[in-house]
């Protein structure tokens, strides 16, 4: 079909694609990730615990919306293009549309894909979605002080450190900052 829109492959990048989370089909992978304490501590701040299948499904349903899609949260699962393997998840959450800001989160549960550019590729897709599809003004995120690999990936995507919430986290009897990063629409460079 002919179109003057330039972005017909909005959800597909160089290494990954974003797709709809599917509680049934994706459950085995989610279950495995929810038993990897290292991953959970990089991805979330709640106390780590192995999730039941019912809990995983309920959590996903809450994010996606029960009867109709949640209008303020855009959640995706990430698949590697090669083999179409499910490797992670990401989302954008909008607090107030009036300010055109969203909070981004991303996690690669599949450790085989860490440190190889897959997360950066998926984040770039998420940013393109934020700026080209949702027409946002800025994207924010928080990254744990001990997650330097993620921080480097976000910097590669153009994010700037905007400050740190000091001592926000307590892990292994130590206090860690939550590093806050932001990217403005005018700073974003499509890759």
């Amino acid at each position: 079909m002919q179109t003057e829109l330039t972005q017909s492959q909005l959800l597909t990048g160089a290494l990954t694609r974003l797709c709809a989370p599917d509680a049934e089909q994706d459950l085995a992978a989610l279950r495995a990730w929810s038993r990897d304490a290292e991953f959970l501590r990089l991805f979330g701040s709640n106390p780590v615990r192995p999730w039941t299948d019912a809990g995983l499904k309920k959590e996903l349903e809450e994010v996606l919306g029960k009867d109709e899609p949640n209008p303020n949260v855009f959640a995706f699962h990430i698949r590697a293009l090669e083999g179409d393997r499910l490797i992670g998840m990401c989302d954008l959450a909008v607090d107030h549309w009036a300010h055109r800001e969203a909070w981004a989160a991303i996690g690669l549960g599949d450790r085989d894909y860490w440190g190889k550019g897959y997360g950066t590729d998926a984040m770039q897709l998420l940013l393109r979605y934020a700026f080209q599809e949702l027409n946002l003004w800025r994207v924010s995120l928080g990254v744990f002080g001990y997650n330097t690999r993620a921080q480097r990936s976000y910097e590669k995507c153009g994010f700037t450190v905007e400050g740190a919430v000091r001592h926000r986290l307590r892990r292994d009897d130590q206090r860690w900052d939550m590093v806050m990063m932001g990217l403005l629409r005018e700073e974003w460079k499509e890759t």
Binding site: H99, E101, R138, G163, A164, M180, G182, L184
Partner: peptide
């Protein structure tokens, strides 16, 4: 601690 640039319209 944090300055979220241009976050309020």
């Amino acid at each position: 601690e944090v300055r979220r640039r241009q976050a309020v319209a």
